[in-house]
Design a binder for these strands. Structure first.
Length: 825
RNA sequence: GCGGAUGUGGUGGAACUGGCAGACACGCUGGAUUUAGGUUCCAGUGGGUAAUUCCGUGGGGGUUCGAGUCCCUUCAUCCGCACCA
């Protein structure tokens, strides 16, 4: 017998076997329940890292477990293949993004194959391939057709050094992710998706997702940021203009002592013109423009502003109110203008004190200050309305309703709901992305490309200049085109789409990946969607998951899908850490999966990563831990080796009779392990405890094999059960061991074992006896003893008698099967 | 500042509904096998104590016959959002 099992030959052997026999290829099968198991598809950076291994190992346990439980399992893999790194590589090393990307995919795919994950590779897709992005463009056209894709001028993140716009997620702490230059804002015409139309549904339907972690739902709720309030207009004194404000506190409208516009608000220039303040206002607005996003919006930046020289009239009482501009009001939230009530809003309060503006109390509770001048801070709690004319005496809640009702009646304003969620900016001035299928015609304006003309191909023969500007701008054969409508001269849109667009529907495409007329057939998605289990990192809690939900709802509304939520259950896996921090090149603490697989094999790598920590939690990498997992697999190897010959020809009895002693205990353990492993995988995703249960079974088997007399049926059942239970975690070694036990078929094709309730019946159990809550003795008792008998037995123990001498028993608590607690004084 | 999570042996972690804290591993100690190292196997391993036993789940308080688990309070670390009117 070999000292160590030979994973180097076993693993490729079974990987080839699975591939040759199309083990993981699936088709729709109405006769079996479906299960769609999906891990977030990776960006092809070139190399697999431990986070990937963890993600796919978790997914594979689920896929193999469900498959052995009779489900028709869809488990696909693909590539999120557009994106900035490919272009950076092109600029830096001169490699074409396409070549760079496809080479990376090749490399990562071969690494992935050495892990032995049960993917249906026939469904592989790459978002950068024309047969895929054709339909990303199709999605754009459908959204455009329905008024959900539009172009508008917007302030976007601009890196002055790279000479390009950046996505929000490419701005880290106010600086460019690539060169660390502070980012500023620039006004550019950009494409948006109108995700805000779906804000309410995206919020409400979170309640339809009990299979999602609360953490993620809370993050999405906050991101959507719904707030109820009112919106009303104020006449600007001496002008025909009005300004509109949004407030969540209509009840404090009589406490307004000044108004504030965001510096970028379009009214700022008009109303300050010709006033003595004009110059100061211009100066302030300019200064704000030069500030970076981070400096401008950080909470600890001091509030500052200037008077515009103009006043507005409070529609409730006709009061003249000065209009200011200030850094703390944001142009893109609400109406970009606020009513300031310093007595009841801390931000307004700080500003008012700094500039000597009045503070007027309009909400009063018994313990709140009545006088604005002596207030130390704003009073934001509940109370009743004062100094508010007819509304005096109303509570905050009632006041809100009645002030809004009054405004509606008088045509001053109305109740409104505001969302923090903004429309999704999808334009990127980048080459390596999905082209936006629109053209600009000199005659007809903005015209969508006809569906029949898709895909708009990304030209391959392009030049990369270090300026970072999109090469599409230089490629005449690309941008020079004809108008789809009038046939006249037109220019193609050279912006490409945010890669999040590509990843917002890839899970649908997996259902029907080779369809060349539609993104997917209705039949295919009706069978497979929604995804039953989605697995990936928390970093996508908001963006990717929200965008995918938005796309799904849109496709549902258009009747392309029958479900309106894409992911029924979501598992967010923790990070893989080394020495307490995230693995990174700069820290030099990266452990390469390739190396681990070479040294210990994929089965060990998978087992360790699943054993070291439950999936949601961060995982501390330990080289010694890996060694331990490897030792365990070797122990299993030896266990099976040493008895395979003895059990090979044994056939299991249809029923195990009354067993005694060790054999009985072993059979108990076998079935207890089936139950434990099944529950841990299915109910809790606690793979670490499932594996530890298998370890216990193997430990018991090792001991059992030392006995002279063995019940070979019980032994066979235990050994084979262990192999089957271990197979979703470490499939290759289990295939080999299964074969060693004399089986011709694959362990992957076995049904998941069922536990036999009869085997779990014990006739004796240990009971703890407590005196006043402290364990003082333990006794073995027959199961099924009555509570009274149990109590009598406990009291009769000599040790307990001794302890109770001279004391009075106050009370006895009996927990059958667990303990007896005797309370004595 | 707001929101969320996590604090258990030397380490990773277990304890699922309030019921024997530390399963399973790693590490360490001792022993066996081996010329030796490695491998493998056996035994021990929360802390204090000579010992009956006492103390122990970040700290403090509470509820309970009984608390890692429930309640209040406090500290530390990590993550997300951050002037959202």
């Amino acid at each position: 017998m070999e000292r160590r099992y030979d994973f180097k030959s076993i693993e490729p052997k079974w990987q080839n076997y699975w591939a040759q026999h199309n083990f993981f290829k699936v088709l729709e099968d109405p006769g079996r329940p479906k299960y769609y198991d999906l891990e977030m598809f990776p960006y092809p950076s070139g190399n697999l890292h431990m986070g990937h291994v963890r993600n796919y190992a978790i997914g594979d346990v689920v896929a193999r477990f469900k498959s052995m439980n009779g489900y028709n399992v869809l488990h696909p893999m693909g590539w999120d293949a557009f994106g900035l790194p490919a272009e950076n590589a092109a600029i830096k090393h001169g490699a074409h993004p396409a070549r760079w990307t496809y080479a990376n995919i090749e490399n990562m795919k071969s690494q992935l194959k050495t892990l032995g994950i049960s993917y249906d590779w026939d469904r592989e897709l790459a978002s950068c391939k024309p047969d895929y992005y054709k339909f990303t463009q199709w999605m754009f056209l459908k959204l455009h057709e329905n008024g959900l894709a539009y172009k508008k001028s917007a302030a976007v993140n601009w890196c002055p050094s790279c000479q390009t716009v950046l996505a929000n997620e490419q701005v880290v702490d106010g600086a460019c992710e690539r060169c660390e230059t502070p980012v500023n804002k620039r006004q550019l015409a950009q494409w948006f998706f109108k995700i805000t139309d779906y804000a309410q549904r995206l919020l409400d339907d979170l309640d339809k997702l009990p299979g999602w972690p609360d953490k993620v739902k809370i993050m999405q709720r906050n991101w959507i940021g719904r707030s109820e309030g009112g919106q009303f207009d104020l006449q600007i004194e001496g002008s025909s203009e009005t300004m509109t404000v949004f407030t969540t506190r209509p009840d404090t409208v009589f406490g307004i002592t000044y108004m504030v516009l965001a510096p970028e608000h379009p009214l700022v220039e008009t109303i300050s013109q010709g006033t003595p303040q004009e110059e100061k206002v211009k100066e302030f607005v300019q200064r704000m423009q030069f500030l970076s996003e981070a400096e401008r919006t950080s909470t600890d930046a001091e509030k500052e502003g200037v008077f515009t020289g103009a006043c507005a009239l409070n529609p409730m009482n006709g009061d003249r109110i000065p209009i200011w501009i200030a850094n703390y009001v944001l142009v893109d939230y609400g109406t970009g203008a606020i009513m300031a009530v310093p007595a009841h809003d801390q931000r307004d309060f700080e500003f008012a004190r700094k500039y000597g503006l009045p503070v007027q109390v309009v909400i009063k509770s018994p313990d709140s200050p009545a006088d604005g001048d002596s207030m130390q801070e704003a009073y934001e709690e509940d109370g009743v309305m004062v100094n508010s004319r007819d509304f005096n005496g109303l509570s905050v809640t009632l006041g809100k309703q009645q002030v809004v009702a009054y405004m509606e009646e008088k045509g001053i304003g109305e109740g409104t709901i505001n969302f923090r969620l903004r429309d999704w900016l999808i334009s990127r001035q980048r080459y390596w992305g999905c082209p936006i299928p629109m053209v600009y015609c000199e005659e007809c304006g903005l015209i969508p490309v006809a569906e029949a003309d898709l895909p708009v191909l990304l030209p391959e023969d392009v030049e990369f200049r270090p300026s970072g500007e999109s090469p599409l701008n230089y490629v005449e054969s690309f941008h020079k085109t004809e108008c789809p409508s009038c046939g006249g001269r037109a220019r193609r849109e050279t912006d490409t789409m945010d890669t999040f667009v590509c990843s917002s529907w890839y899970f649908d495409r997996f259902c029907d990946p080779h369809n060349d007329t539609l993104p997917f057939s209705k039949e295919a998605v009706d069978y497979w969607m929604p995804v039953d289990q989605y697995i990936g990192g928390v970093e996508h809690a908001i963006l990717h998951l929200m965008y995918s939900r938005f796309f799904t709802k849109f496709l549902y509304d258009q009747d392309f899908l029958s479900c309106d939520e894409p992911f029924t259950n979501l598992l967010t896996q923790g990070m893989v850490l080394k020495d307490g921090s995230k693995m990174s090149k700069s820290k030099g603490n990266v452990v390469s999966p390739e190396e681990i697989i070479n040294t210990y094999g994929a089965d060990t790598a998978r087992l360790f990563i699943l054993f070291a920590s439950p999936p949601e939690r961060d995982l501390e990498w330990s080289d010694q831990g890996v060694e331990g997992s490897y030792r365990f697999l070797n122990r299993v190897w030896r266990t099976v080796n040493s008895c395979a010959g003895d059990i090979r020809d044994i056939s299991l009895p249809p029923q195990f009779g009354q067993l005694e002693g060790e054999a009985r205990q072993l059979r108990y353990k076998t079935h207890a392990t089936i139950k434990k492993v099944s529950d841990d995988i299915e109910l809790r995703f606690n793979f670490n405890t499932a594996i530890s249960a298998i370890m216990e079974l193997n430990n018991m088997l090792t001991a059992y094999l030392d006995h002279d007399e063995q019940d070979l049926s019980v032994l066979k059942e235990a050994v084979e059960t262990m192999i089957v239970l271990l197979s979703p975690f470490s499939p290759h070694i289990c295939e080999e061991l299964w074969q060693m036990c004399g089986h011709q078929d694959s362990v992957s094709l076995q049904s998941w074992p069922r536990w036999d309730a009869a085997a779990l019946v014990q006739d004796e159990i240990e009971i703890a006896i407590q005196v006043s809550g402290k364990v003082r003795d333990r006794i073995m008792v027959p199961t099924g003893l009555s509570e009274d008998d149990l109590q009598d037995l406990a009291l009769a123990q000599p040790k307990i008698q001794e302890l109770l001498a001279g004391k009075q028993v106050v009370k006895t608590i009996v927990i059958p099967g667990k303990l007896v607690n005797i309370v004595a004084r």
